[in-house]
């Protein structure tokens, strides 16, 4: 009995510092934001705690779809980012998994190395590449333009006037949705590759042989055996890319323009410039609800996927 008490005290002692910290500096602020999203902005920037759904109605207002449009764009950018990450990441994972073990480890290490460097720095690198005076446009509107002009001067008969025209202006890359999608894909690609890799690496190769014994060709073997069985990895990777893309702030802020604002940016402006805390809290609420739905889906799907797998490993 006494020993049991001592054990209880020991557990409590071990947990208490983290429990205290996470309750006071995480759970309470979280509840505060959720509660505030139902409040109203006071005249001097304060908060009036009257329970209403005004903020949510303003966000999902179909007659004035300012925020709804930003919401839609955010979902669109996050979805395209996830798709592009899959198209790049899945074959990449496949290739890594087909390498000898030693090289596989170095390749994984090389995949993670940029991932652990500063996100801001990595985004800044893309400014250098994509902006009007950047690397791509120096080549496009500089070197390539000069080459085309020279070619036309040497061989006047060539129908290249349209190319001279096109290369005389920089490509509109910077400040567009495309730039954000590139930046986000770059940022979260390892999150797609790793779960795909884990699923492909675990895959039992004898299943392909079985399929081929049943006269499946390689394409059929891939689409009807390999891909369905590695799908849990794809779903896990997709969620891991989709969720941070939804909440992106730095990427649209640095690579996007006025026409490519995302949810993260409006949350920022509600708190830092408009000082409408309740509305900003409501938008955060929507973002967190999406994140929570994604996470639940993730656990559902991956846990179910592991259960449904044949008993190898």
């Amino acid at each position: 009995m006494n020993k049991n008490k001592r054990k209880q005290w020991r557990v409590f002692g071990l947990i208490f510092p983290s429990l205290f910290w996470l309750v006071v500096f995480f759970a309470i602020p979280l509840i505060l934001v959720l509660a505030m999203s139902f409040g109203e902005r006071g005249t001097y920037g304060g908060v009036i705690w009257n329970f209403n759904l005004e903020n949510f109605a303003r966000f999902f207002d179909f007659s004035d779809p300012l925020y709804l449009r930003i919401f839609g764009r955010t979902l669109y950018i996050a979805a395209i980012t996830t798709l592009v990450s899959f198209l790049i990441g899945y074959p990449m994972a496949f290739w890594i998994a087909s390498q000898p073990e030693k090289r596989r480890n170095s390749l994984l290490m090389m995949l993670m190395l940029p991932f652990w460097t500063n996100f801001l720095v990595r985004t800044y690198a893309w400014i250098l590449i994509l902006r009007d005076q950047g690397v791509i446009n120096t080549i496009w509107a500089g070197h390539f333009h000069n080459a085309v002009v020279w070619l036309v001067a040497v061989l006047p008969g060539l129908p290249l006037d349209w190319l001279v025209q096109a290369t005389s202006n920089p490509l509109p890359l910077f400040g567009t949705n495309l730039a954000i999608i590139i930046g986000l894909t770059y940022g979260w690609l390892p999150d797609m590759v790793l779960p795909c890799y884990a699923a492909i690496e675990r895959f039992d190769g004898s299943l392909v042989e079985a399929a081929q014994d049943l006269y499946a060709n390689r394409v059929q073997a891939f689409f009807r055996v390999i891909f369905p069985l590695t799908l849990p990895g794809v779903v896990a990777g997709s969620i891991l890319v989709f969720i941070p893309s939804l909440g992106a702030y730095v990427t649209p802020d640095l690579l996007g323009g006025a026409k490519s604002v995302m949810i993260g940016n409006i949350i920022y402006s509600q708190f830092m410039s408009a000082r409408d805390y309740p509305f900003g809290a409501a938008i955060s609420f929507v973002l967190m609800a999406l994140m929570l739905a994604g996470t639940l889906f993730y656990f559902r799907f991956t846990v179910a996927g592991q259960k449904g797998e044949p008993g190898h490993d």
Binding site: S18, L22, V23, F25, F26, A27, I28, P29, L30, L32, V33, M36, I243, P244, L246, G247, Y249, G264, I267, Y268, F271, Y277, G280, A281, S284, L287, M288, M291, T295
Partner: peptide
Amino acid sequence: LLYLPIIIPDIAMAVMLLLF
């Protein structure tokens, strides 16, 4: 509660701490 800070978007955690 222990896992939540990992999966919550940065911007949401930033906002709630600022408010607090």
